[in-house]
Design a protein around this nucleic acid. Structure first.
Length: 565
RNA sequence: CGGGGCGUGGCGCAGUCUGGUUUAGCGCGCUUGCUUUGGGAGCAAGAGGUCGUCGGUUCAAAUCCGACCGCCCCGACCA
């Protein structure tokens, strides 16, 4: 490839409001270009990287016997109505009508389609298990696309689906898929974590996410260095520290004029946040819910929803609270209220002598004791884990880290197959729903995730397997231009992927551009060649220079590329 | 859903508050020529803009007012 003829450009400036390094570098290096909110064009260099990633994914999927297929990007609404997701999926599902007025959706995912297909074809236990996958575009009408290709509306995804007779078969495939993912992400040069996850709108019980570690990532995970426990923050648990058993003191009112927030109360009474009870009032389909957590904790609504088994859960508006509790927000507490369902976090139950709102203007109670002063209807884990909490498995101190979700595994069970009538017959001729799993990889966000972990002040440093090219031949000086062409043509005949920077610009520009784009090796033909007859190979990451004669160049490079892990 | 910001050649920005010397500037990139050429070169000459759209105010609008469209950022309820 001659660079002078390649659709290639680099930019010195990118919009001032781009935050992420990967976003900046992808724009600067000319990998992608924004087209509209959450829509990106992949230019040739960027598309090469994407294809490298796709090849790795294909190889590893094929290795575990998954079969590639292609489903349509546009799906009829009917299927989505059958599974209920036409209503459940919300505004992220982009819907439109064809000329006849029939409704369709742009696929945000493909469970419905693949399940119906499987139901038509996989009618016998003899064919099971089967794993299929596809690599194609998805569309989710995100409320706020951000971070370049990390959260875009249109994106590439690898989605695989497994169909099994029973949970045991399913479990085996789930494990195989997990190790395939581990190989894929390692080959991409990523440092990642596997964590327990929530399944969200896809549904299902067991779910794991692969998180690429990145300080700016939008997902937060909890992990234990000591035993290896790790989970998404939303579902992470922690052990409740046993409080020293203080003696229960007598309940007392204190005057707290205009002291409303937990922070204000802590300051005003000069006590730690953990000694305050935070009472949050929710509105649900079955009336008001009083939710109590410690002042230093936050209510985890996902956990709360699961615990109380309610669908609708919204913070109650101020007026509604005033009407029902008779006090303004800020002085609400659990003591003496009976027209709500009281849900209390387990950590609260371990404590003694708390401060809480007294349900009276400008007044708090001190020495509030759970059990004595109020009786919860439901007790459970409804809080977010905090850094330093004790690991639920081994008790060591937990850490909270950030990252980017790059892969997700779900055990779906029969959620889709039952609703869509995807059944098979067992040995005895008995009908069962197919037991399903689904497994995604965010293909088009992977370049960004990789760049987040592999860059320096000069630009991108691609790991070997995903680099757009292995090397670039750089002529440094007019006298060597013709010879550099020879060098290029020689390399082109080898398996090495080479590009020749034949542009009429100074050598400095070529070096800078090569560094920015992240080509692993520069093959420099210049003054060293004129002086010593040697060609230089310069490594992108370390800057190390290896000299080779024209004769040895290809072999030397092949060797370096192989070692370049 | 709430708050904030932005829209000026391909890209990044200034100019808008205080309307009129602005023929609408600057940097990057682009074209041509000469000199350069191992880490984003210099000089010279050029091309390229209905100042997001529509409407209003005014003798006069990139600048003031209104509506719309597009884009970006922050927050999403913790009492």
């Amino acid at each position: 490839m001659r660079l002078s003829k390649y659709l290639f450009f680099t930019a010195k400036e990118v919009p001032a409001d781009t935050e992420l390094i990967s976003h900046k570098l992808m724009l600067k290096a000319g990998l992608v270009r924004p087209v509209a909110s959450g829509l990106y064009a992949f230019l040739p260099i960027g598309y090469r990287v994407l294809n490298k990633i796709i090849s790795i994914v294909k190889e590893e999927m094929d290795r575990i016997g998954a079969q590639q297929l292609l489903l349509p990007f546009v799906q009829p609404a009917e299927l989505w109505k059958k599974t209920g997701r036409w209503d459940e999926y919300g505004q992220e599902l982009l819907r439109f009508q064809d000329r006849k007025g029939s409704w369709f959706v742009l696929s945000p995912t493909h469970e419905e389609l693949i399940t119906r297909l499987a139901g038509d074809i996989l009618t016998s236990y003899r064919k099971l298990p089967v794993v299929v996958y596809q690599i194609q575009i998805k569309f989710r009408d995100e409320p706020r696309p951000r971070g370049g290709v990390i959260r875009s509306r249109e994106f590439w995804m690898k989605d695989a689906y497994s169909f099994c007779q029973d949970d045991e078969q399913m479990g085996k495939i789930y494990k195989e898929m997990q190790s395939a993912y581990e190989r894929i992400f390692s080959r991409c040069g990523l440092s990642y974590k596997v964590v327990e996850a929530e399944s969200g709108p896809i549904g299902g019980d067991v779910s794991h996410e692969f998180i690429s570690l990145a300080p700016n990532g939008e997902d937060r995970i909890v992990e234990c260095d000591s035993c290896g426990y790790s989970a998404k923050l939303e579902r992470a648990r922690s052990r409740v520290k046993m409080e020293s058993k203080e003696r229960e003191k007598a309940l007392e009112e204190v005057n707290t004029p205009d002291v409303k927030t937990v922070d204000e109360v802590a300051n005003f009474l000069n006590i730690p946040l953990a000694k305050i009870l935070k009472t949050v009032v929710y509105q649900t389909e079955r009336g008001l819910l009083g939710v109590v957590v410690r002042g230093d904790h936050q209510v985890n609504e996902d956990k709360l929803k699961k615990l109380v088994k309610l669908e609708e859960l919204n913070l109650a508006p101020d007026e509604l609270i005033y009407e029902n509790i008779g006090v303004e927000v800020g002085f609400v507490g659990p003591v003496g209220v009976d027209n709500w369902c009281l849900v209390v976090d387990e950590a609260v139950m371990q404590g003694r002598n708390f401060v809480a709102g007294a349900n009276k203007k400008d007044t708090h109670f001190i020495n509030v004791n759970p059990g004595r002063d109020f009786s919860p209807e439901i007790i459970g884990d409804i809080r977010y884990v905090l850094p330093g909490d004790e690991c639920p498995v081994c008790g060591a101190s937990l850490k909270v880290k950030r990252g980017i979700e790059i892969g997700h595994l779900f055990k779906l069970g029969d959620r889709y197959s039952s609703k869509l009538g995807a059944f098979f017959l067992d040995q005895k001729g008995k009908k069962h729903p197919l037991i399903m799993g689904c497994y995604g990889i965010g293909i088009s966000r992977l370049p960004a995730a990789i760049i987040e972990q592999n860059n320096d002040k000069d630009g991108i440093i691609w790991p070997r397997e995903v680099a757009p090219f292995d090397c670039v031949v750089i002529p440094a000086g007019d006298e060597v231009f013709d010879f550099s062409r020879e060098v290029y043509l020689n390399l082109k005949d080898s398996p090495i992927e080479v590009v020749w920077d034949d542009r009429d610009v100074s050598a400095g520009v070529k070096f800078k551009d090569s560094d920015l784009v992240g080509i692993p090796f520069k093959v420099i033909v210049g003054r060293t060649f004129l002086k010593e007859g040697k060609i230089e190979i310069k490594k992108r990451g370390s800057g190390e220079i290896i000299k080779a004669s024209k004769k040895d160049l290809t072999a030397k490079l092949m060797e370096l590329i192989q070692d370049g892990e």
